[in-house]
Write a protein that binds this DNA or RNA. Sequence first.
RNA 1: CGGGGUGUGGCUCAGCUUGGUAGAGCGCUCGGUUCGGGACCGAGAGGUCGGCGGUUCAAAUCCGCCCACCCCGACCA
Length: 602
Amino acid sequence: MRVSQLLLPTVKEDPAGAEAVSHKLMVRAGLVRQLAAGIYVFLPAGWRVMQKIEQIIREEMDAIGCQEMLMPVMQPAEIWQESGRWDAIGEEMFRLKDRKRAEMVLAMTHEEVVTWLAAREVHSYKQLPQLWYHFQTKERDEARPKSGILRTREFIMKDSYSLDVSEEALQESYRLHIGAYDRIYRRCGLEFMMVEGDSGMMGGAISHEYMAFAEAGEDEIVFCRECAYASNVETAVAGADPEPPASELTPRGADDAPFAKASGALVDLFAEAELDTPDCKTIQQVADYLGLPARAFVKALVVVPEGGGEAGAGGPAASSGPVTSSGPVMVLVRGDHELNELKLERALGAGFRMATPDEVLEAQGVEPGFVGPVPTPLPVYADESLRRGHYVAGANRPGFHRSGVTLEQVPQATFADLRDARPGDPCAQCPGELEGARVIEVGNIFQLGLKYSVPMGATFLDEDGKEKPIVMGSYGIGLARIAAAAVEQHHDDNGIVWPASIAPFHVHLILVRASDDTQRALAEELYASLGAEGFEVVFDDREMSPGIKFKDADLLGCPAQVVVGKRAGEGVVELKERGSGERRDVPVAELAAALTDLLARA
RNA sequence: CGGGGUGUGGCUCAGCUUGGUAGAGCGCUCGGUUCGGGACCGAGAGGUCGGCGGUUCAAAUCCGCCCACCCCGACCA
């Protein structure tokens, strides 16, 4: 490809509002352009990267016997009504009507179509297992698209689906995918980790997420180097808190008790007393006001259980748990801890929402901000970390908190792991300590089980002639996220440094002086010969000053740059490795070999 | 959905507070000089200032409504 003909609109300045490095660089390098919020055009070079990624995925999926096909984006509402997701999914799904006023959806994912297909075409255990996949655009009306290409409303995904005769058989399909995914991400040059996703609990569906390390990522994981436990923080199990409650840090009555009130008076955590805390509605405010650490508090939240928990598109339904009453419930976590939504759902056995201020007032007799468990008429769920210690909690009286609160004063409390795990927590499975990392979710794998096959009637006859539901799995990979994650992980001040496997081109051939006949002749010759030898070459044949060409080449980030310049007459060119910046003169005769060698290392 | 911000040539932005001739840099076109790290000189093209309405002799500027985009939040009482 000649740069003089290529649509490669590089720009010097960062796009307005861009924050993520990958966003800035992909726009600057002329790979993508934004059409609307979360909707992007892939320009030629950007699309080449996507196709490279797609091909790698294709090869690895084919290698495990997965069959490529293509399923439609626009789908009739009926199949979504059958699966139950027509109602379960809210505004995130694009819906429209056709000219006959029939309800249609723009698909977010393809479980329904797969199950529909399976229901009509798969009838016997002899046909199973089946592994199907396709690359297709997904439409999701994200509440908040962000970070360039990382979170968009329209994106291309490889999604595959497994159909099996049993749970045991599903494990094999799952295992095959794990192998394929490991190879895919490794080939794409990503540093990644497979972590536990939503579930891992008994009865819940099993799922894992593939996470690429990147500060721009929206997800957070914790992992243990000792035992290889790794999980999304959303689902991570935390070991017991290594630090004792705040009330045990300093002996009662010690002179150096650190808990001095702003006014100078000391707060005795052990003493049952009401504390005047005007306008202190958040833990942070009370903590600052009283001069206590956040961990000395109990955070009391009032929630209203409702419905089943739907974890989101493609996700399995929340596991069913104990039946609970339908009224509001009080949830307690320590002041410095974060309530974990999924864990609470599991404990409640239902989804929930935060109570409105009015509901809080009605249930507890006080406005949010001063709610506490002593006393409360509500059922109480408390995080394990509150089993011991004395705390400050809301006094159930506007403007007041109370000290000396222990969970022994809350006999109805049910204890459970309800908080987010965080780095520094002990590993729940070994003596190790959890580390944390920010990541981009580049793929996931789910054991769906019977979630779709039962409601949609996808069954087969087993060896005994008995009708059974097909056991399914689904497996996704976001192509653009791989590209963005690769840029996040591989770049420098001058631009992108693509892994050779997904670079838009292998070689960036630069003609320094387009007006120099010798240089031009050699460059043209190399462009032709390297192409013939199977290298993918972008040839910058433009009549521009060399500086611009060098800058563009670094920005675009192809692994090798071949510069045809001063020594063209001697048959010598300069070879630069984009990653290391190393450059050396190479006789034309040795160029192909040198390139092969360089690309093998990139 | 709540809060904040921004919409001005293709891009990045100034001008708006205090109404009165629409600007800069980059990019683009033409001519010339340059030519190994985003060159220089000269001459040009290009904007109903997001939209609609209002105030005013006069609106990019003030007021209202709407739209789009960006950021924060939407569990952290």
